[in-house]
C-alpha cells in the first residue's frame, strides 16, 4: 500500500486559510463553545470556524455522525449549531460582535 504523505516542509507552514486579495470588514469577537475567536464582521460562521481550525461542530445525535459543514448552502442541515441560544445553520449565519455559539 502506498502513502502520499504530507511533505515535511508542509508541517508548520501556516499559510493563511483566508484567501488574500479580498477586502474584509474589521474583526469582531465571538465565541464557540466558550473559546474566544475573532473574525471579520459579517463573515460566514461556517467559514470562520474553518479558519479557526474548527471542523467538528458538535456531536449531534451520534458521534458517528458529528456536526460539520458539508453543503455550505443550507440544504444538508449537518452544520446545525446554537447561536445565542437559538438553533441556526452555521453556513447561513453571518458573524456579529459578541455572538455566542455553542454545539447543538
Amino acid at each position: 500500500m502506498d502513502v502520499i504523505a504530507k511533505p515535511d516542509r508542509m508541517k508548520d507552514v501556516a499559510h493563511p486559510i483566508r484567501i488574500a486579495g479580498i477586502s474584509r470588514p474589521a474583526d469582531v469577537a465571538f465565541s464557540f463553545e466558550g473559546r474566544s475567536l475573532l473574525a471579520p464582521e459579517g463573515e460566514n460562521l461556517a467559514a470562520a470556524l474553518i479558519a479557526a481550525g474548527i471542523r467538528r461542530l458538535g456531536e449531534g445525535q451520534d458521534a458517528a455522525r458529528p456536526r460539520a459543514a458539508l453543503c455550505m448552502m443550507g440544504v444538508c442541515q449537518q452544520c446545525l449549531l446554537r447561536v445565542d441560544g437559538r438553533l441556526a445553520q452555521a453556513c447561513l449565519t453571518p458573524i456579529y460582535a459578541g455572538m455566542v455559539v455553542t454545539a447543538a
Partner: peptide
C-alpha cells in the same frame, strides 16, 4: 461523515463567496 469532508459545489461557495480555503 468526518468533518473536513465537504461538497465540491460547496467548495465553490466557500472559495468564491466567502474567500476561504
Amino acid at each position: 461523515t468526518l468533518p473536513g469532508v465537504l461538497g465540491l459545489a460547496a467548495a465553490t461557495i466557500l472559495l468564491k463567496a466567502h474567500g476561504m480555503l
